[in-house]
Amino acid sequence: MSLELHVIFQIAVVGIAAAVLSSLLKQSGRDEIATLVTISALVLVAAVVVTNISHLFMEIRDVFSIQ
């Protein structure tokens, strides 16, 4: 188990890119596409985070022998 700093930077970059893109799209009057960009960024980040959370929960289950 190493500290996976790159994962956090990836998520931060996705967040910044989505924020900038959606604000640009909103200013040029394409609100629907801006919403889509925000939602897809959220889904992208959620996929990464949920994988890691499931890993954490499996580990907790092993360590504390819960169920």
């Binding site: 956090i8 931060a12 910044i16 959220l42 954490l56 360590v63």
Partner: peptide
């Protein structure tokens, strides 16, 4: 990272909070 992203994209800041906590918890385990 969380403090700098919070104004731009609050949802993503929440996810970063979650994943940093998950990694630290894994080390604790």
């Amino acid at each position: 990272l969380i403090t700098s992203i919070r104004e731009m994209a609050p949802q993503i800041a929440f996810w970063i909070t979650l994943i940093v906590s998950v990694f630290l918890f894994l080390i604790a385990l």
